[in-house]
């Protein structure tokens, strides 16, 4: 089961420069473990130490922000497309 994962510029150091890679998993959590197995270190950039999605990144499954679809428990199936993007945010404090 292959799922295409789009990788943002800042994380391409983990994928040898590739803009997208294939990964597998029936949930987002499993997919991220699989990604990390092939691109060591990537998981730490997506998930915090206490196991939640990092606030600095947005992950989409088929154009839906996973924060609205069950976060790391979001179910995946063959042919789904996953996009990882850095959040663009900041502020004066």
């Amino acid at each position: 089961m292959a799922i295409e994962v789009k990788i943002p510029t800042i994380l391409r150091t983990y994928t040898g420069g590739a803009k997208s890679v294939d990964a597998k998993g029936d949930t987002l959590s499993a997919l991220i473990d699989d990604l990390d197995a092939n691109h060591a270190g990537l998981k730490g950039r997506l998930i915090t130490e206490d196991g939640n999605l990092h606030r600095f990144v947005n992950i989409y499954v088929n154009d839906e922000d996973v924060r609205f679809t069950g976060s790391l428990e979001t179910a995946l199936s063959d042919g789904d497309a996953v996009t990882i993007l850095p959040a663009v945010a900041g502020g004066s404090r």
Partner: peptide
């Protein structure tokens, strides 16, 4: 120009759907 989804004098963020559409 993007919408500041936070509409705040001390914080800004791109709306997550806008961000995906932009990229």
């Amino acid at each position: 120009p993007m919408l500041n989804a936070a509409r705040s004098p001390t914080f800004y963020e791109f709306d997550s759907a806008d961000l995906l559409a932009l990229y």
